[in-house]
Design a protein around this nucleic acid. Structure first.
Lengths: 95, 95
DNA sequence: CGGGATCCAACGCGATACTG
DNA sequence: CAGTATCGCGTTGGATCCCG
């Protein structure tokens, strides 16, 4: 059901995180830095959800200290493009 | 912010209600009847939210007993059309 | 750097019962 | 017909502290 997609993207920060990733943020601290008000915990929780739903892929890079890279999967990439009209809609009708 | 739109449509039943209205349901009991599992309370709550956000207009018709008509505003109508690609996306990627 | 663990207040929403 | 009132519990999400 589409309900899942709507509830997932409707959750606080989810869409903001995806949009940040689309803008090029691919590391934990980059995403957190580009979304104002987002806490460590919520970012971690959301990333796990997005990963479970196969919208985001998590890649550990064995450097010291280890860095982790997050990339959009094809499904995630397509979703974020679909979300764009919604962003435009919000601007058009906002009070 | 578009966050509001995402959170609003992400709430349980919201999108289902809008879709029911697009399919022609314009009275309280019609909407409730066309969305399986939807309770009186949740429909009333959602309709109030949607009305506050100017996606739905509420019109009281002074008959006996009084009937109430719900119609999509231009904003609501546009939103529901924007939501359609999301529905398609969900079908395409669902596991 | 990239998180996990815990605690807790606020919210979401289903069930039930009642109303003009 | 078109709602409102109340209860009760599960879920969310912010704060804080800790870790490899």
């Amino acid at each position: 059901m589409f309900q899942h997609a709507a509830e997932l993207t409707g959750k606080k920060w989810s869409a903001a995180i995806l949009l940040a990733m689309q803008r090029g943020a691919d590391r934990f601290s980059e995403i957190r830095g580009s979304v104002t008000g987002l806490s460590d915990r919520m970012l971690a929780v959301r990333l796990r959800e997005l990963e479970e739903h196969a919208l985001v892929r998590r890649t550990v890079i064995p450097t010291v200290p280890t860095t982790v890279q997050y990339t959009l999967t094809p499904a995630g990439d397509e979703l974020i493009r679909i979300l764009q009209p919604l962003v435009d809609w919000a601007h058009r009708w906002e009070t």
